[in-house]
Write a protein that binds this DNA or RNA. Structure first.
Length: 429
RNA sequence: GCCGAGGUCGCAUAGCCCGGUAUUGCGCGGGCCUGGAAAGCCCGUGGGAUUUUUCCCUCGCGAGUUCAAAUCUCGCCCUCGGCGCCA
């Protein structure tokens, strides 16, 4: 959510940003109008309250000096002021609530270097890492590999839960755990604190970190307890300091979260999504930074560097893209994606997303730090390190051998008892 | 789940019984003092509006009683302690 000061003092900057995104200004103008109306009616409410407070002091004064008749006179005079205040307050509060729910839907101000374009086709190449392996055979896609090796049981996942749920089995499950462990260790060594968050959040905290439409399309709600299953550990880790004033000496706060992630994936269908590429549940190792606004662009580059170093260390081929205006979403001011090469699919596909959300989440969360000039919103950043399901797909497709087995990236072998190849699950009998 | 005690400004604390302007300490910022510093003293320290001077809000959340609620009443949330259950 943008700071209200931005609408009052620099609305043209928001309008210019909407122009770059190709969206109309209506909401901005409406926020400004509602703000003016709120200020006007709130002023009237304040004046009435002022009269009430003065009367209350007068009554107290009169009673103290034993002037019961005087006290009674003032009481009669202001007997209806309470209901007047109630009426006016209702209107004032309505303006404020409407203003802010509209403000919640207005996206963050983009960084000036974000390329302009209407959809993901206009994302620009930032860098290319590793190279496409020359295979002497026709590559299989990961869906074929998991089937022929028995690494994922999709049919039974659907039976006990629903479509896009799955049982991860054998060596692939073991590598999934190795990826979690490796990803966490990698970031712990770079000074990040390992955090295992709650897997459910309440509505208020959740509204602080995400686009409101996500409640319909992304998050699972838990009834009757009114909790939401987290879609990523970014959400609880970022909301962790909600309603707090952070001492500057604590900044930057660097955390690595490891957790299961739950996503409804409403509306996602299609051949390209078969297998475990797009599923309702996976594990993710996530980087989170909460910092001084001065430093956030530097931290954004650091997060990207961490992701790049980690994916390089896995020996994978991928590219980094600079996300364009039309592909950006509401919360981030700038975003890089890592897209891994999938030879079976013949395409680069998203495996990491690295965002600077500037003060957008912090404003919603009322998350500030102390400055010599009052309290001020912090900046929040997040980046995937490893989303295990997608990393597994990238490793399977890039490291596949002619017989359908998969070589284990060297760096992971120590986490898998020295295993060098993923082998088929033994057919039970 | 049951019983008890709690939740007050960044932290800590007083006020609650008996309704009438949010207390004090620490921390932090500014000023005075100093060759410089420490100490000491003074001012400030949450959110909002504003005609820049003042006003309004804020004592876990919400409702009620009242001219007036941190204070009284009811409901809820959370924390701590004890008991019960339990991987």
């Amino acid at each position: 959510m943008l700071d209200m000061a931005m609408f009052r003092e620099n609305a043209d900057a928001i309008r210019a940003d909407h122009d770059r995104r190709g969206i109309p200004h209506d909401s901005i103008d409406e926020v400004i109008r509602l703000d003016e109306e709120w200020r006007k009616s709130q002023y009237d409410v304040d004046q009435l309250r002022r009269r009430r407070n003065e009367a209350a002091r007068g009554i107290a004064e009169a009673k103290k000096s034993g002037d019961e008749a005087g006290a009674k006179a003032i009481m009669d005079e202001v007997s209806t002021i309470g209901s007047q205040i109630d009426d006016l307050t209702a209107h004032s509060e309505e303006c404020l609530a409407t203003r802010d729910s509209l403000r919640m839907s207005i996206p963050n101000i983009l960084h000036e270097d974000v390329p302009v374009g209407e959809d993901d086709q206009k994302n620009t190449l930032h860098s290319l890492h590793g190279e496409k392996a020359e295979l002497s055979f026709e590559p299989r896609n990961h869906n074929e590999l998991i089937d022929m090796n028995g690494w994922v049981d999709q049919a039974r996942g659907a039976k006990v839960a629903g479509s896009r749920f799955y049982f991860l089995q054998g060596d692939l499950a073991r590598m999934e755990m190795a990826l979690q462990q490796y990803g966490a260790d990698f970031l712990i060594e770079r000074g990040y604190t390992l955090i295992q968050p709650p897997l459910m959040m309440n509505r208020e905290a959740y509204e602080g970190v995400t686009d409101l439409s996500d409640f319909e399309t992304v998050m699972y709600g838990i009834e009757p307890d009114k909790y939401y299953l987290i879609a990523t550990s970014e959400h609880p880790l970022t909301a962790m300091r909600m309603d707090e004033v952070i001492e500057p000496s604590e900044l930057p706060i660097k955390m690595v979260g490891v957790s299961p992630c739950f996503r409804r994936e409403v509306g996602a269908h299609g051949l390209s999504d078969r297998g475990i590429w797009r599923v309702h549940q996976f594990t993710k190792v996530e980087q989170i930074v909460i910092c001084d606004p001065e430093d956030s662009w530097e931290h954004h580059e650091d997060l990207l560097t961490n992701a790049v170093d980690m994916w390089d260390s896995l020996g994978l081929h991928y590219r980094v893209v600079n996300i364009c205006t039309g592909d950006m979403g509401t919360v981030a001011a700038r975003k890089y994606d890592l897209e891994a090469w999938l030879p079976g699919a013949g395409a680069y596909k998203e495996v990491v997303s690295c965002s600077n959300c500037t003060d957008y989440q912090a404003n919603r969360l009322r998350m500030r730090y102390r400055t010599s000039d009052g309290n001020s919103a912090v900046h929040t950043l997040n980046s995937t390190a490893i989303a295990t399901s997608r990393a597994l797909v990238a490793i399977m497709e890039q490291n596949q051998l002619e017989d359908g087995t998969v070589s284990v990236p060297e760096i992971l072998r120590a986490y898998m008892g020295g295993k060098t190849t993923l082998e088929p699950v033994a057919k039970g009998d």
